[in-house]
């Protein structure tokens, strides 16, 4: 049960080492920098260092309680990330798959709208633009 915030890349197999021992179901989700319009060079992710770790840990504990997870891990990067790089990963471990899937979904909804990260797109021509929060992400929270 841990949350990690770091600038550098992570190896999923390392994140999953000794994870969820004894669980019947492990679900992982990995977010990747994608280029929808063919013009994106990279993302710059800003965060609020004093708050990030504690908020990720709080959402992890909440998910564990709610879905009776035996283990969870969150890794989230900040700084400059090129297209194709992994941004973040959540892993959830439970007795059965339904709880593990739901907990991963729940964690992603909370991380997207309530963890203190802000994405800025850097285009190939060097111009930058802050990514707007989506109403659909905000609405997703009301499911829980």
């Amino acid at each position: 049960m841990s949350a990690l915030v770091q600038p550098g890349p992570f190896q999923p197999e390392q994140v999953l080492r000794d994870f969820g021992v004894g669980a019947g179901a492990i679900v992982t989700f990995t977010g990747v920098v994608r280029d929808d319009g063919g013009n994106l060079a990279a993302l710059e992710i800003e965060h609020y260092p004093a708050m990030t770790q504690s908020s990720l840990t709080a959402y992890g504990h909440e998910a564990a309680k709610r879905f009776q997870l035996s283990d969870w891990r969150i890794v989230h990067r900040h700084g400059r990330l090129e297209v194709g790089e992994q941004i973040m990963m959540v892993a959830t471990a439970a007795r059965h798959r339904h709880a593990a899937f739901q907990a991963a979904d729940y964690l992603m909804d909370w991380l997207k709208s309530r963890a203190p990260f802000w994405k800025r797109e850097i285009s190939r021509d060097g111009s930058t633009r802050w990514v707007d929060a989506r109403d659909s992400d905000e609405h997703a929270l009301s499911r829980w």
Binding site: S113, F117, W118, D132, E138
Partner: peptide, 11 residues
């Protein structure tokens, strides 16, 4: 400490 910021866009 009081912090102000736009809606978050993590994940």
């Amino acid at each position: 400490e009081i912090a102000f910021f736009p809606p978050m866009t993590g994940g």
